[in-house]
């Protein structure tokens, strides 16, 4: 816990989180794709950052903890891009998804 921590400061952070939360609920109501992406998902990232920094005190924690958590997150990103190429495509150079083939056949009938 940093020296400047106080219940008043925590309440202020909580209030900020509530404002961000309200934006993340109201923004997608306009049903504009880019606005939804920014308000719902972008702000989720900001909220997570605020919680990690102010409530988990990552800002005053030893840097090794941030590196450790960051490397775990990086593993997930690698996982995503490692398999996305296969999962997101219906066919490749020497393969085609059987499910996709069946759906295509059904659609043509």
């Amino acid at each position: 816990m940093s020296a400047g921590s106080s219940p008043k400061k925590y309440v202020k952070v909580w209030f900020l989180l509530l404002v961000l939360f309200a934006i993340s609920v109201i923004g997608p109501a306009f049903e504009i794709r880019w606005l939804t992406l920014i308000t719902a998902f972008g702000i989720a990232g900001v909220k997570a950052f605020v919680v990690a920094k102010e409530f988990m005190h990552l800002n005053v924690e030893k840097k090794i903890v941030s590196y450790m958590l960051g490397s775990m997150f990086l593993a997930c990103v690698l996982f995503y891009f490692g398999v996305a190429g296969d999962v997101m495509n219906s066919k490749g150079q020497h393969w085609e998804k059987k499910v996709y083939k069946v759906e295509k056949t059904k659609a043509s009938h």
Binding site: V65, M68, L69, A75, C76, Y80, V87, M88
Partner: peptide
């Protein structure tokens, strides 16, 4: 912190799979 690190992989993997399937 180590526990939280392992949880990041558990939930991160699950959410990454969900996002992939959702797209």
């Amino acid at each position: 912190w180590w526990l939280i690190g392992s949880e990041i992989v558990i939930f991160g993997g699950l959410l990454a799979s969900y996002i992939m399937m959702r797209l």
